[in-house]
Design a protein around this nucleic acid. Structure first.
Lengths: 158, 158
DNA sequence: ATAACTGCAAACTGTTTGCAAGCGA
DNA sequence: TCGCTTGCAAACAGTTTGCAGTTAT
């Protein structure tokens, strides 16, 4: 079921490329497959690594040239957590208004929706004389399990 | 009145330095004065420029070495707006949890507080098994006045 | 054919750091 | 005096870009 959404995202991105008279090359195909075959959030460097596992011909430059296309198409969302590199979210088209929590211990990113927050945002915007167009809520947090047991259950946290 | 808050912030930062056995040098004094004599959000580069207008002896290195102290002291807040450089907010000690709304029309940054959002954030964090350490809520919005009258009253919007 | 695309490596930008000299407590 | 601080310039990390050759349409 999720797979269908993924395949649809791939198709939408190909359409996006076509509409802009951009070409569907081997490298772009590999990048697209890599991006939409994961649900994880990733960095440019991680995407490069994953893509190169499928095909060594993908270069760092092509990754960096393709990422802006992916965000421009609105199928991938770019996020800033105050780190010196950006994170990318391939789940964006399913849940366009979800928010993120990043674990300070292991960098794991958790997604969550909140209708409450959304309605408060609109209320605040109205009060200030603005119409809210988009929102970005990012929480930094520490893992409770890690604090209690000295280790957290996220694989990245070794 | 606002001035008193500013002077207090300067004092608090000097105390912070003293507690850490750090010295109050000429350069740090100039940086402190510059930071707390403005209410504007600034970048490292802007701070350098402003500080050097007061005293040419302030170097980029000292700016970059002092900024982490300012944020560590909780008197200045570091912010990421997805640009390649960070913004700093000298109004943080008055309103430690305020959020930001950016006008898409003129890039004006408006600050606002919301206890409601804060408590929802903590609730969500708890539910997910994390302790929320910091939060960033950024709203992008359009100016209602601009939409009605064709011009908005923000000075930046020319 | 021709314009978009590629990898490579050099360039760029914001930030950090090693060093020797300087200065506050 | 002692050791924190400084400016300088080189180093760094993530990202961007010029170039010459390649490829999709």
């Amino acid at each position: 079921m999720q797979t269908i959404v993924r395949e649809e995202a791939k198709r939408k991105f190909m359409d996006f490329l076509e509409k802009k008279n951009l070409r569907i090359t081997d490298q772009r195909r590999i990048i697209i497959d890599t991006v939409f075959d994961t649900e994880e959030h990733f960095t440019a460097e991680q995407l490069l690594e994953w893509a190169r596992e499928k095909d060594r011909s993908v270069s760092r430059a092509t990754i960096y040239r393709t990422l802006p296309l992916l965000t421009e198409s609105n199928l991938v969302h770019e996020m800033d957590f105050g780190k010196p590199y950006k994170f990318y979210d391939p789940n964006y088209s399913d849940h366009p208004n979800h928010n993120h929590l990043i674990c300070e211990d292991c960098e794991k990113i958790v997604e969550f929706d909140s209708d409450q927050i959304e309605s408060i945002e609109n209320e605040i915007g109205q009060k200030l004389g603005f119409t809210v167009k988009s929102q970005k809520l990012q929480l930094s947090a520490t893992c409770d399990i890690l604090k209690k047991s000295g280790a957290c259950d996220n694989k990245a946290c070794d």
